[in-house]
Design a protein around this nucleic acid. Sequence first.
DNA 1: TAGATTGTTAATCGATTAACAATC
DNA 2: TAGATTGTTAATCGATTAACAATC
Lengths: 231, 231
Amino acid sequence: MDHDNTRNLIRQTAPTPTEHPNVSPAVIRRLPRYFRYLRELIRQGKLRISSGELSRLMGVTASQIRQDLNCFGGFGQQGYGYNVNFLYENICELLGVDAGLQAIIIGAGDLGRALVRAPMFEKRGVNIVSMFDVDPALIGRTVGGVLIRNMTELERFCSEISVDMAVLTLPKDRAAEEAERLVACGIRGLWNFTGKELEFEDSKVAVENVHLGDSLMILNYKLCENTDDKD
Amino acid sequence: MDHDNTRNLIRQTAPTPTEHPNVSPAVIRRLPRYFRYLRELIRQGKLRISSGELSRLMGVTASQIRQDLNCFGGFGQQGYGYNVNFLYENICELLGVDAGLQAIIIGAGDLGRALVRAPMFEKRGVNIVSMFDVDPALIGRTVGGVLIRNMTELERFCSEISVDMAVLTLPKDRAAEEAERLVACGIRGLWNFTGKELEFEDSKVAVENVHLGDSLMILNYKLCENTDDKD
DNA sequence: TAGATTGTTAATCGATTAACAATC
DNA sequence: TAGATTGTTAATCGATTAACAATC
């Protein structure tokens, strides 16, 4: 491995130039949580933190934190811990926060309009460049500063403006066909709220499914389980 | 297709009267998916299915299906497979679909209004009995047939009507305090969209967190990872 | 009965936790 | 140097898959 012997205690360059194969899904799903906690630590003006201190804060083991972070390179330093800003910047890099990702929303119904107005995208460096719908009553309107275009304009729009991801909030029964169409337009990421399970053979297309119905049912289960308990 | 010429072959009573301790979270999180696939099979008029056939349909191993279902009792029959209706009914029971659960939504902003109009709750047997907000411009209005009440009326409302769960779509910074208030009102389930991590020591309160920001970041990661791949 | 398929135990795999040598 | 804390290997735990006896 690389061992640049820096006399200054904290190395300020990433050890390897972002190449991370074979990182387990379990680790990846935990990264956003590190991102949030580090952002909060920065807000508090904290400069360094040890895996032990962070573990107490987050309610996980220090071992897990060190293992997780080591998947992506040595962000810490023996005897010192982790430089909060340096670690945060590296995690931002991993999560593409400063990659200038551009998104469109397919479907300007209740959920689409709720999402476009949420500060979530801006906070995470994702720029919403347009919404699309088939409803003439919606086309031409602006929600949260974003214009709703006719779905027929999709291909032309994507050929003119580089779009990285699409947020799918359209009806379930049209999800599969429109997803194919989006991929044909060169879009490589789908944030899928439709409830339809989408799959792409060539894993060039990243899909993140948000199945709210499933989430609700899990709550139902936990609730009934607690109730069933013969005190 | 396959008509059921099995007189007494299929047992139609649940083997144990719903007592399921120590079922792993991994299994529980898969239950809603079984629910969806079984519902679809019923729609298609299918009467029986083997773990092998279902495994091909769902893209999981037959072994996993048999292990999962066996956590809750013997729903199948050797040499036959599973009776679709019987299995579906048992999973509905586990997921509280016919338990007549009653819910309120806290926060009548964009997301709250989008959720209340979604058919999701009705499909899963959850009845939304009221929304609550602090904004005078919203209080008194009706969305999706549900009245928005003043948050000050929460305690009185809950003392008059039995409420099982609350959907939290209020601002993050008020989440913790309002959650405490809801639990004090006797509510035992929280569907939490606030982004604030909620915890309750006495596990009498079921919490299901939906962290949309985290989900978006995971998509970001996958997208950047694909892109980074040197062609 | 013979064939099919479950329920269940045993084997494998992966993820988490513990331990400690390396080293700042 | 001495103390602290990482990076990393080894041990443990849990979840998935394979195998097969039970039995419909």
